[in-house]
Amino acid sequence: MRRYFTRKFLIYLLTFFFAVSIDWAIPRFMPGDPVQSMLSRAALHPESATAMYDYYSNSFGLDVPIWRQYLNFWGSLLQGDLGTSVWLYPQPVSSVIANAIPYTLALMLPAILLSWWAGNSFGAFAARRKWLDNTALPFAYILNSMPYMWLGILLAWLLGSVLDIFPLSGGYGYGLQPEWSLEFIGSLLKHWFLPFASLFLVGFGGWAIGMRNLIIYELESDYSHYLTALGAPQRLIRRYAFRNAMLPQVTGLALQIGVIVAGALVTEIVFSYPGLGNLILQAINNEDYFLLQGAFLFIIIGVLIANFVIDMVYVLVDPRTRTGMRGATS
């Protein structure tokens, strides 16, 4: 057991190293020069521009050879320093991200977990009822195959524009300041609903279809037939089938998290929601190496942690992985 987790941990550490290295490299492959474009917006005299260029290059650490930049990056990363944002100069990247993270988490966690839970419950329920299977599942297919962006736009148009129930963009009302007041929290919730609903619905459809298929597969498996042959009531057979069908769904949840991050990016952009996804878009537009690195770093950490947790959960729920760990017995 211990060896298994040590090995897993080392693999995750290695993955982290490579992912972060790629994360460092990707922004630097972008054409253009962040300092140059920052200065060109300021429209300075050529002489002062050169001086400013040197000053900023130095302060961002971009005036040293590329390998030195890489080592410096790891050095400061290990000290918890993510650098300074080019776009929001001179704010440190860590505080920019810290402001965005709560929005993304508040959007993503409920959307991922609730859609997973509700989708699986609904799928398992639909698998037993033919009429529901025939009527509701096509809608699940439609939901699942809809791009996040398109569903987001549809929801915004219907609930925001036509019915005017929910606001179309932003994290909270324009006239408000973040504070612990009822008005602010209400506005927060109202702005949260549409992006949440679009993420939830797409996820819900996918999970429901997956669960429905898995349950039907499990109910047709040999152990279900054997239980039937021994006169076990449907209740017991369904309980076993549900439990076994959940296993691939647990793995699916881990895999889905990476995809949902991308989905959140699109959703946040559609609704101008002030989370990590929106930040990534701004960072790319402004060639903000440090902000982009920092935002990706959080996604990498998020995906790795989620996978590690699922790895551990899997060992608890599926005995077959445990056998693999200590080698076959007899």
Partner: peptide, 19 residues
Amino acid sequence: RFTAVSLVPQYAMSAMNPT
């Protein structure tokens, strides 16, 4: 079933719930 008539199935290898 089970009490009066019972079955040893063809698929005994996979007849028991693996989990």
